[in-house]
Amino acid sequence: MPAVLNGSSIKAKSEEAGVAVSVKAVNMVYDGVHAVRSASFDLEAGKFLTILGPSGSGKTTLLRLIAGFQRPTSGEIFINGAAVSAVPPHRRSIGMVFQKLALFPHMTAAENVAFPLKMRRNDARDIPARVERYLDMVRLGGYGARRVHELSGGQQQRVAIARALVFEPDLLLLDEPLAALDRKLREEMQLEFRRIQRELGVTTINVTHDQREALVVSDEIIVMDGGEIQQKARPAETYRSPSNAFVANFIGVTNFLDAQGGERRAIRAEKIRIVATRAGLAGTDTIVEGVVVDAIFEGERVVYEVRVASLGDALLRVFDHDPSAHSQLEAGSAVYLGWAASDVLEFKP
């Protein structure tokens, strides 16, 4: 095996295959709960897919089905063209980073990374060099001899990534490993995942409830709710044209306007302009009057909550993205809101 850090060997293998993961009409029912409902999707080799959804949406169950920890009630999962439902996890070529990392506490960082190589009976002479290379890749060179509990949270994350990738799996699964980190470290690790994934070109499925993470790291996003796939699209497309009200509500800050003829209409918070005088709204199609209920200063933006009488006393959320440029509107002040008709999202019931 040549050096893999440029990812050439993996890329070559996956590009031939085309579709790396194919989920076909998968259902999962346990204890009377329909956790996954006729889920179907294809994932191209080398892509980074995020399954996004609230807790209980079935996203983790879907991931565990792909990993092989559970067998689907019906349907089939194909990895590189082969049906895998009957294949136990240890015979699948899948690296997984667990929610609680699941590092082996009785081993050092290097022993953790060497574990899959030993279990897969790699040549023992090659193991130390390969472990070193992957520890370098996650920027933990020289930390191999440390025990797991001697490493910081971020360092443990990196060990878990190295351990999941060191045996060059066909597929990398991430089960919300970043959920427990503080925000700064989480954002840093998101970029780290992205960098490593691009570097190795390994097909990746990430599960999260963090919409920001999904938008930042993914090539594609699947939004799940109630066990069903709601939408599968590129991040920008998911954001710009959500397929239904759930997706619109789950990603971004969305204001639902009155329903017209059974259709639900919505407008994103950042698509609404807010001004104190009507004159500032030239070029907008819809103008409504409202009263500021609350102004929340968030640093880089101000979030206004505005009550609009003409929309049935609806409470609209509006962003001001340049709060330092002018004085903040006070609660109680009368304002005008305006937006373009083309920015209104419409959903069939």
Binding site: P89, H90, F98, F115, M119
Partner: peptide
Amino acid sequence: AAAGSLGA
């Protein structure tokens, strides 16, 4: 579960 996914 982790040991299983790692090939054990």
